[in-house]
Every structure is written in structure tokens, then in C-alpha cells.
Amino acid sequence: MSTPAPVQVGSLTLGGNRPMVLIAGPCVLEDLDTACRIAETLQEQCGRLGIPLIFKGSYDKANRTSVNAYRGPGLEEGLRILAQVKERFGLPVLSDVHEVSQIDSAEQVLDVIQIPAFLCRQTDLLVRAGRSGKVVNVKKGQFQAPWDMKHVVGKLASTGNEQIVLTERGASFGYNNLVVDMRSLLIMRQLGYPVVFDATHAVQLPGGNDGSSGGQRDYVGALSRAAVATGIDGLFWEVYEDPDCARCDGPNSLYLRDLPRLLAPLLEIDALVKRL
């Protein structure tokens, strides 16, 4: 399998046959104290295990199932929270953008601009994200074939920005269900850019809770092990102190306390596959 060119995120490197990176944090930001507690715990856990960490948290989830669902603190407050996390803990930060107009503010704070899966074909959004000069992580749409991501890459690369990361999060499989085709990870990696596996969204049951999404977090570990065995460059996990009390994506998110147990065998697999 080809080795993607490395992408630099602060002091971290994605790709280039380097050890895998963990992108982790809450699905949606709630408040500064919660974000800082999660970031501090993640930093301690990843530091002990020696795994590079990018903190993620959405300031706005614009594609919620119900109009009454919690969306987040919004652009201004959400970026303020992420800027504080970045300053206090020295972690690179990632969040989603949903509109071209958001990027002017987002690029001032974010190390990684993320394009949500439902928007992965939006040309204007991709081009503006590329022009930011930031690392751009694109979630592959649930409707998108992995080989068609070459056109997404082409839109970003047309701006001269080669700091591109592609993330697999499962494909629609009937109603309220997703399935992961592990071939997708290999196919997208052949495009020459780092590939991340979003294991917690892969076990999501979109709209499956009558107004919100369900999930099956019990399968995150197994799917992560399978994905890491393909040689991916990073994992994407959404985590909470108590996912059952989370305001977004709780059923498919992991308990913070479970991360060391889940990560330890993944690091061994990663080292074996990449012969580190």
C-alpha cells in the first residue's frame, strides 16, 4: 500500500508512515470547563501512551436530526473555547465549518478545518477552506464512493493547498444504519493523502432515536482494530466523561475512562503494521 505524504499539524505529523494520531474530544462543545476537563484528561492519557493528540469539538452542529436538538454554543463562543483549550494545553484544535462565511473567523483559531460529510461535495466551501492554507480534513459522505474522493481532493488541491486529510465514517446501509467497507481506507490512501477512521460515527444510527441519532459504542473497539490493521494514519473518536448525559451523539461516544484500555492494543497493531 502506498504511503501518504506527511501532513503537518502543529508539531504533529499525519501520514508518512508515522505513528497514528488520535483526533478526540466531544461531539459538540458545551462550555469551557467541560472542554478543558476533557482536554486535560485526553492529554494525560495520550501522554502516557505516547500517542499524538488533536483536540476536536464542534461549535455548531448544523445537521441535527430535529430542529429542537442542541447545536452548540455557536461560532464566536465556540472558537473562544477552542482558543482557550489551545492556549492552556498546547494542543492543536479541529472543528467543522458549514458555510464559506465561517472560515474567516475559523482560520484564525483552528489548526484543522473540517468539512462535514454531508458537505464534502460543496465546491465553494472546499475551495475557500483550501485557500485558508490550513490543514483541511474532509469527512467522506455517507453517499460517496471512496474513489470519487479524488474529485474532492482535486477541488482542494486546485488552491495550491496540499495539506489534505480524508476521513472515513461509514456508508448508508438501509434506514438508520451505516456500514464500514474497510477497502475504502485503502482506496482513499492511494490518493496520496493521510486517511483517518472515524470509528465513533461509524457506529452511529442516524436518526435512530426518533428525533436524535442512536449508536452502538460497543463496536468502536473492534472496528478501530480492523481499521488500524489496514495502516491508517489516524483515529477519530468522540468522547465524554459520561456519554449518556452528553447533549449530542452520546450513544456512539466513548467513556473517557475507557480510552487507555482501548488504545493500548491499537498502538501495538499500528507499530506492527508500520514496522515502527
Rank of each mutant, 00 (worst) to 15 (best):
182 M>Q: 04
183 R>Y: 02
183 R>K: 09
184 S>D: 06
184 S>L: 02
184 S>A: 09
185 L>C: 00
186 L>T: 15
187 I>F: 09
188 M>G: 14
188 M>Q: 12
188 M>V: 10
188 M>F: 07
189 R>V: 01
189 R>F: 00
189 R>S: 03
189 R>E: 08
190 Q>C: 07
191 L>G: 10
191 L>Q: 14
191 L>M: 15
192 G>Q: 06
192 G>W: 01
192 G>F: 01
194 P>D: 10
194 P>I: 05
195 V>A: 13
195 V>I: 11
196 V>R: 02
196 V>L: 06
196 V>T: 04
197 F>L: 01
198 D>H: 05
198 D>N: 06
198 D>C: 08
198 D>I: 04
199 A>D: 04
201 H>P: 05
201 H>L: 03
202 A>N: 15
202 A>R: 15
202 A>V: 15
202 A>P: 15
203 V>A: 05
206 P>A: 15
206 P>C: 12
207 G>V: 02
207 G>A: 05
208 G>T: 05
208 G>L: 07
210 D>P: 11
211 G>D: 11
211 G>S: 13
211 G>Y: 10
212 S>G: 09
213 S>F: 11
213 S>N: 15
213 S>Q: 14
214 G>K: 09
214 G>L: 12
214 G>C: 11
215 G>E: 03
215 G>D: 01
216 Q>N: 12
218 D>T: 02
219 Y>N: 08
219 Y>K: 12
220 V>Y: 00
220 V>I: 07
220 V>P: 03
222 A>M: 15
222 A>Y: 11
225 R>Q: 13
225 R>L: 10
227 A>D: 01
228 V>S: 05
229 A>N: 08
229 A>R: 03
230 T>K: 10
231 G>V: 09
231 G>C: 12
231 G>A: 13
231 G>F: 06
231 G>D: 11
232 I>Y: 09
234 G>C: 03
234 G>L: 02
235 L>P: 05
235 L>N: 06
235 L>T: 00
236 F>D: 15
236 F>N: 13
238 E>Q: 12
238 E>L: 12
240 Y>V: 02
241 E>I: 04
243 P>D: 04
244 D>S: 15
245 C>P: 03
246 A>T: 08
246 A>W: 07
247 R>P: 07
247 R>K: 14
247 R>T: 10
249 D>I: 04
250 G>M: 00
251 P>R: 14
252 N>W: 01
252 N>C: 10
252 N>V: 05
